Simulated scan of single mutants.
Amino acid sequence: MINQPDTAETKELIEQLVSIPSPSGFTEEVITFVEEYLKPFDVETKRNRKGGLIATIAGENSEEHRMLTAHVDTLGAMVKEVKSNGRLRLDLIGGYNYNSIEGEYCQIHTSSGETITGTILMHQTSVHVYKEAGKAERNQVNMEVRIDAKATNEKEVRAFGIEVGDFVSLDPRVELCENGFIKSRHLDDKASVAILLQLVKQIHEEKISLPYTTHFLISNNEEIGYGGNSNIPEETVEYLAVDMGAMGDGQSTDEFTVSICAKDASGPYHLGLRNSLVDLAKQHDIAYKLDIYPYYGSDASAAIKAGHDIIHGLIGPGIDSSHAFERTHEESLACTLQLLYHYVQSDMQRY
Rank of each mutant, 00 (worst) to 15 (best):
A8I: 13
E12G: 15
E12S: 15
L13W: 04
I20T: 08
P21H: 07
S22M: 09
S22Q: 06
G25R: 10
F26V: 13
V30F: 10
F33L: 05
L38F: 06
K39L: 14
E44K: 10
K50P: 07
A58N: 11
N61K: 01
E63D: 14
R66V: 00
D73N: 05
T74Y: 02
G76H: 04
G76T: 09
K83T: 03
K83R: 11
G86T: 07
N99T: 09
Y105L: 08
S112C: 02
G113T: 07
T115F: 02
I116D: 00
T117G: 12
I120Q: 02
Q124W: 06
T125V: 13
T125R: 15
T125C: 14
H128F: 11
H128G: 11
Y130W: 15
K135Y: 13
R138F: 02
Q140F: 08
V141C: 01
V145Q: 03
D148K: 08
A149S: 02
E154S: 12
V157G: 07
V157A: 07
F160I: 00
V164L: 05
V168G: 03
V168Y: 02
C177F: 13
E178Y: 08
N179A: 08
G180S: 08
I182W: 06
R185K: 12
D188I: 10
A194D: 10
L199C: 03
H204P: 03
E205A: 07
E206V: 13
E206K: 15
K207N: 14
I208F: 08
P233G: 10
E235T: 15
Y239C: 12
Y239L: 14
L240F: 07
A241W: 05
A241Q: 07
E255C: 14
S259H: 04
S259V: 03
S259K: 05
S266C: 14
P268C: 12
L280W: 02
Q283S: 15
H284Y: 15
Y288F: 15
K289V: 09
P294M: 07
Y296G: 02
K305H: 15
G307M: 11
G307S: 12
I310H: 03
I311T: 15
I311C: 03
H312K: 15
L314Y: 07
I319Q: 01
D320F: 01
S321D: 11
H329M: 06
H329K: 06
C335L: 00
T336G: 04
T336S: 09
L337V: 01
Y341V: 00
V344P: 01
M348K: 05
